[in-house]
Computed example of a mutant assay.
Amino acid sequence: MRVLLIEDDFILGSSLKKALEKHAYGVDWLRDGESGLAAIESLDFVAVVLDVGLPLLGGLDVLRRSRQKGKQVPVLLLTAFDSVRHKVEALDQGADDYMVKPFDLEELLARLRALIRRRDGRIETVIRCGDVNIDPSALVARKGEDTVHMTAKEFQLLKLLMERRGRYVTKNDIEYALYDTGSGIESNATEVTIYNLRKKLGSDFIKSIRGVGYMIER
Rank of each mutant, 00 (worst) to 15 (best):
R67C: 01
T190L: 06
G121S: 09
L197D: 06
V148P: 00
R117C: 04
L178A: 03
K87Q: 11
A189V: 15
E145A: 11
D44N: 12
C129W: 05
T151P: 00
V48L: 06
I123G: 02
R67T: 06
C129A: 15
D28L: 12
E7F: 14
V88E: 11
E41W: 03
L4M: 09
R142H: 08
A189Y: 01
G33F: 04
S35Q: 13
S83P: 06
G53F: 00
L157S: 07
I40Y: 02
L16W: 07
F155L: 11
S187P: 11
E107W: 03
K143Y: 06
N172R: 13
E145K: 13
A39P: 04
H149Q: 10
I216F: 03
A114V: 14
C129E: 08
R85K: 12
Y168I: 04
A110F: 01
V52F: 03
F45H: 12
E145F: 09
R165V: 05
S35G: 01
D146T: 14
K87R: 15
G70M: 08
V126R: 12
V148L: 12
P74A: 12
L78M: 12
P136L: 09
E34Q: 10
S83D: 15
P55S: 06
A24P: 00
V52Q: 09
H149R: 13
Y168E: 08
V126D: 04
H23C: 04
M1P: 11
T147L: 10
A24T: 14
R117T: 02
S35M: 07
I6S: 11
R210Y: 01
E217N: 08
A141M: 08
G121N: 10
R122L: 12
D104A: 13
I123E: 03
Y214K: 04
L4N: 04
A110N: 05
G94R: 05
H149C: 00
H86K: 11
S183E: 14
G94D: 07
R218E: 09
E175A: 15
R117N: 06
D204R: 14
L78S: 04
P55K: 10
V48K: 09
S42K: 15
S66N: 05
A189K: 14
H23N: 11
A19Y: 07
G13E: 14
Y168H: 10
G70Q: 08
R117H: 04
P136E: 02
L109F: 04
G36S: 07
L76D: 06
A24C: 08
D120R: 15
L4Q: 02
R85T: 14
V49E: 04
A19G: 05
A19M: 14
D135W: 05
I11Y: 06
I134Q: 01
V46C: 10
E154S: 10
A138G: 07
A90P: 03
